[in-house]
Design a protein around this nucleic acid. Structure first.
Lengths: 204, 204
DNA sequence: CAACATACGGAGGCTGCCTCCGCTTTTTCA
DNA sequence: TGAAAAAGCGGAGGCAGCCTCCGTATGTTG
C-alpha cells in the first residue's frame, strides 16, 4: 500500500509514515475499547497529533476502518486458503468460512453497521473489501451447492448480508449467552422444521 | 395514556396536549422522510416549538419513538388477533406474525437499531414494547412447534432478533430487489439443504 | 380578575466533525 | 553543507446537533 495511490516519484516523508502507523495502532486500541463510533478527535488526541493530521491521513471514519481491516484481510485470506486446502467437505468449508467472516465482522463493536453501508455505497473505501468477501462467499457457496449441501436459491450476497446481520444482533445479545449461537444455527437451518415430504402436519 | 403516569389531580394544560399531538404528527412525518436519526431540533423547528418544549415532552429519541410506536402497537395487536382467529395453521400463523413484525420494524428508516438496543437495555422506553412482542412471538412459535412446524431448539427471542436483523439489512439491500425476500426465506429455511434427502436429488 | 401553577422559548454550554492556513520539518540539490 | 522548495503539521474556528436552564407567557382555579 505504501505510496501506491500516489503517482509521485517522491517517497513519502518519514514523519508521515510514522504518524500513520502510530494512528493505526492507537485507533485499533481505541476502537477495541470503545467501538467504531467513538470520537475521532479522541483518537487524534490520544495519538498526540492534531485533528488536521488525523484527517489528512484518514479523511473519514470509513477510510480509517478500511485501513484497519487491511491488516486483518491478510489473516482472513490466509484462513480462506487454509479452509480450501484442509477441508474436503464443501459444506463444512462454507460453514467455516461463514464463521471466519462472522469473527471478522465483529472485530470491533459496531463494525457491522459501516460494513452494511459499504455493501451498497460503492463510494465507501470499504466497498471493495466487502465485494471481495461476497465473491469468496459465493465461491464456497457454489462448491457446497454442487455437492448438494446448500439450497440452490440462496446467493452469496444474501449469506454475506446474513452474516453481517447476525453479527449486528450479537451486539445486543451479549447479555444472553445462547443467542449468538442460536442465531448462527437459525441462519443455517432456519426455524421451520424439516418437512421431509410435503405431508405437512395435519394433526397426527 | 393521558395523564396516566402523572399522579396529579390536575388535568394537563390544553396547550401541552396540543403540542404533544402536533409534535407526534410532525415527528412521524419527519422520520418517515428522513429516518429515525434525523435531527430532533429540526422536528421541533418544523413543529414551530422551541427545543425546550420538545425535550420536555420527549426526553430522548427513544421516548419519541416509543410514543410513535404506541399508535402502531394497536394495529399490530389487531393483526395478532386477526391471525389468531383466521389462521388455523399454526406454522402459517407464525409466518404471518413474523411478516407483521418485520413490517412494524421497518416503519421508519433506521428503526431496527434502537429496537435492538431496547431488547437489552431495560432502561429504554422501548424495552417494554419489545418484550411484549417477544412474548407474542414465543406464543406463536410454541403453537407451531406443537404442530411440528418449527424446530424445537429455536426460541422466540431469537426469532424476534432475527426479524430485527433482517429488517436492518433491508436498509442496505434496497438496491437489490431480491435480497429482502431472500433473507426472509433464509431465516425460514436456512441455507443448508435438507439433509434427510441429500441422496434423493430428484423428486416431488 | 387576580394569583397561582404550568408550560414555553430560545440562548448558551457542550461535544464532535471537519477545514483552512500559517508555521515547522524534511528533502532536494547545488 | 546550507539554503530553497516541497511536504506535512497543529489547532483555532466554523458548523451542527444534543440538551439544560430560567425568565417569561399562558392557561387554570376560585
Amino acid at each position: 500500500m505504501t505510496s501506491s495511490t500516489e503517482a509521485s516519484g517522491r517517497r513519502p516523508r518519514t514523519d508521515k509514515q510514522r504518524n500513520r502507523m502510530h494512528l493505526l495502532q492507537v485507533a485499533e486500541q481505541h476502537f477495541t475499547e470503545h467501538g467504531v463510533t467513538s470520537s475521532l478527535e479522541a483518537i487524534a488526541k490520544r495519538a498526540g497529533v492534531g485533528a488536521g493530521t488525523f484527517y489528512r491521513h484518514f479523511p473519514s471514519r470509513e477510510a480509517l476502518l478500511a485501513a484497519l481491516l487491511q491488516a486483518r484481510a491478510e489473516q482472513l485470506v490466509a484462513r480462506r486458503e487454509a479452509i480450501r486446502q484442509q477441508e474436503s467437505d464443501t459444506t463444512t468449508a462454507l460453514t467455516l468460512w461463514l464463521d471466519a467472516l462472522s469473527e471478522w465482522a465483529t472485530a470491533f463493536d459496531g463494525l457491522p453497521e459501516p460494513l452494511r453501508a459499504a455493501v451498497t455505497e460503492d463510494t465507501s473505501p470499504l466497498a471493495l473489501t466487502c465485494q471481495g468477501y461476497i465473491t469468496t462467499t459465493d465461491e464456497f457457496l457454489h462448491a457446497a451447492r454442487r455437492d448438494g449441501g446448500a439450497r440452490p436459491e440462496v446467493r452469496g450476497r444474501d449469506l454475506f448480508l446474513g452474516v453481517l446481520a447476525m453479527s449486528w444482533v450479537r451486539g445486543a445479545a451479549m447479555a444472553d449467552e445462547a443467542s449468538p449461537q442460536a442465531l448462527s444455527a437459525l441462519m443455517r437451518t432456519g426455524w421451520a422444521a424439516p418437512a421431509a415430504s410435503a405431508e405437512t402436519a395435519s394433526n397426527p
